[in-house]
Design a protein around this nucleic acid. Structure first.
Lengths: 201, 201
DNA sequence: CCAAAACGTTAACAAAAGATAACGAATTGG
DNA sequence: CCAATTCGTTATCTTTTGTTAACGTTTTGG
């Protein structure tokens, strides 16, 4: 996909938060970057400050921590979703997690500095603040739902939920990543799948 | 505490996000409400749209779900913290959780309508958008940390973390609420505490 | 002040999950 | 294309957690 199409897709995505008129878009557009991310390459790394947020035009990424030398995947982003090590990006402190492309991916990026410039821009400032608020609120709600599922549901229930709402994750992610995403080990997920199959028959 | 003092405390709290000059504050102030919440009374209820967010001047609240007839506490707010059923407040849809005062509490409140009025206010709009963004970002980071602890840590590790960072929760909340907050049952937390005591000796 | 309810601990047992290892199947990366 | 790695499942064993119930203590609310 060429950058022109990518921009069109991104602008369309943004309308759920904010609608830029052509003059505003012209300015906004100039602050965007494009980034090809080869499979297994990192968008963010532990110990480094994350200087960009991205929009996934094509491909997918996983977020993971390393604990006791082991990788623990805790999230994914696919096409038409944003991606960033949010805490690091927002606080300007080194992040704790990695973000890695799982396929050759293409992203539109906004650097922290460009974002600040736009937030302070006479023409764009108000809308950018609003955009930032609405995006943050959107993700706040996502986190809220996910926390609720950890507090009120068993791993098996979370997996059953995923069966109805997580098509992308189920179809495009290996099972051991999904296991950690659900808060359990791959072996345990394998057993849960068998339990469910037995009941289903 | 009288409302005048409460306003001073709230204004001071807000400075971590936004600083209002006196003219702005005069307008902002007019959109605030005050609410005494007797112990065990609810600030938000399952099935009802949450029409306000609050600032806890005095007291404390717990957030809980009801699952299979059982109450599952998943969060707390204390003095100098905000409180709301955020998803319901932001989406205008009925909420899934209850918020209940655990002591006689005093809150400053902002209704959804007043917030919208201020967001559209010529003088206040920009700062209010910014305020909203920064608050949402702040809570996003809180959720991010909490999710990470559920994905990467055991219940025992989460309890040990709480021992160093959760003074208010440990000292002011009954143990069975804390257990659910950690994602386990009260019986299990009791065992974890015993394990830790045995090791400590 | 007192009866009722709520709370924290412990025990006993069942269920689930973690750790480790083994195995074939699938994927991968030259 | 093939050797090496990764992946998903299964088995075994251990640890942890859930469930239920009992108990004494504390708190609560008339």
């Amino acid at each position: 996909m060429d950058t022109l199409n990518a921009l069109t897709v991104f602008r369309e995505y943004l309308t759920q938060f904010i609608v830029f008129d052509d003059a505003e878009w012209a300015v906004f557009k100039d602050h965007l970057g494009f980034r090809m991310l080869k499979k297994k390459k990192h968008f963010a790394e532990q110990g480094a400050v994350c200087n960009e947020f991205g929009f996934v035009v094509k491909g997918s990424v996983r977020y993971y921590y390393v604990k006791d030398g082991e990788e623990i995947t805790n999230y994914f982003s696919f096409e038409n979703e944003l991606v960033s090590s949010y805490k690091s990006f927002l606080t300007r402190q080194p992040g704790f997690n990695y973000i890695q492309a799982l396929e050759d991916s293409f992203l539109i990026t906004v650097s922290y500095n460009d974002l600040q410039t736009m937030l302070a821009h006479p023409m764009l400032g108000y809308k950018m603040e609003r955009f930032g608020r609405l995006v943050a609120e959107y993700y706040l709600i996502c986190y809220d739902d996910r926390m609720a599922s950890f507090i009120t549901k068993t791993p098996e229930e979370r997996y059953l939920d995923l069966l109805t709402t997580g098509r992308d994750i189920l179809q495009r992610m290996p099972q051991h990543y999904i296991a950690h995403f659900l808060g359990i080990t791959p072996v345990s997920l394998s057993r849960i799948r068998r339990r469910i199959l037995r009941v289903a028959k």
